[in-house]
Design a protein around this nucleic acid. Structure first.
Lengths: 167, 167
DNA sequence: TTTTCTGCAAACCATTTGCAGTTAG
DNA sequence: CTAACTGCAAATGGTTTGCAGAAAA
């Protein structure tokens, strides 16, 4: 869980995770390929909640020939095989995160786009209760909080710098 | 709040609401037109959470010449003028509901598509708390619960009828 | 060699928009 | 008469797919 020389920012074990996923896909009968691996590595080297465009850029840093279709196809594969989850935070661009097994919801900064995850058992419980009260049996939900993160609020408050300090 | 002969199912005061909206749009400088009115009436005659397609169908019952673009344009107008709200429950089709002023969230039946609204002050509170803990200041959120409504669970349980009783 | 990949261009699909004719005011 | 409105067809924009060639097993 340490020691290996990280080449990009992002999870230090990105390469290992990518390799493992690639191996498991191979075991599932799929072929290994440079292009696919580039996408997979790009994905695990990212901070999560990446869009296809971001992924394409990162993948091309590794192997410039990568095309958008392959990014779409590869991410679909990862999702189908349980290695990634696709999220839709509105705005028409799918975002991908490594599958974590553990359920969680999201807070999204409407200024910088930062996404943080959280779990709240009490909210989950209340949701079940509300639903039951309406006669529903819930098996999934979507909860997203939109607002401004600490950094962005600080930036907006600071009247000095280049950004508009709240127009 | 009674007496008037309702022509469709749906809110009995649909016609009145439609007329009022139409009038307010006229006051805002827009022109009244048969086509637009058909869409507005179709909208208020619906149970809420209608898609454009459903709206188009209903509007055409009133005036067959209505085209999709007009439905889109009219709904956009209603949203901009605060008479309707557009929701995205996933699946790529926008759904519209009459603007209610009051904030609420939704439970969606994944079998029949029924949508129920609810408010839960405690959940709202917990959301604020969670967000604050992460340094965020929330100004909006999206909460949707997905599951099966009472009727659909009953239908699925009943082993007799024409539907598959859970395949 | 056989099957899976991949890039490209075309296809999809919900929604938007340009245009030219229609209608309200 | 002028400004809005409307249907149609074409344009958008994210995502998917058909195809023919490239690469893996």
């Amino acid at each position: 869980v340490s020691g290996s020389p990280k080449q990009h920012r992002g999870p230090p074990d990105a390469a290992e995770r990518a390799a493992s996923v690639s191996a498991r896909l191979a075991r599932a009968g799929l072929k290994r390929s440079a292009v696919r691996n580039a996408v997979i590595e790009a994905f695990f080297a990212s901070e999560g909640h990446v869009t296809v465009d971001e992924l394409l850029l990162r993948a091309r840093e590794i192997l410039p020939s990568v095309g958008p279709s392959t990014v779409y196809r590869t991410m679909k594969l990862l999702v189908e095989h349980g290695f990634a989850t696709s999220r839709d935070f509105g705005g028409g661009h799918a975002r991908f995160e490594p599958a974590s097994g553990r359920h969680h919801d999201h807070v999204v900064c409407t200024r910088c786009g930062a996404v943080r995850e959280f779990e709240d058992q009490e909210i989950e419980l209340l949701q079940q209760q509300v639903a039951r009260r309406l006669g529903f049996e819930i098996d999934s939900h979507r909860l997203e909080l939109y607002g401004r993160c600490a950094a962005c609020r600080a930036a907006d408050a600071r009247p000095t710098a280049r950004g508009r300090g709240r127009p």
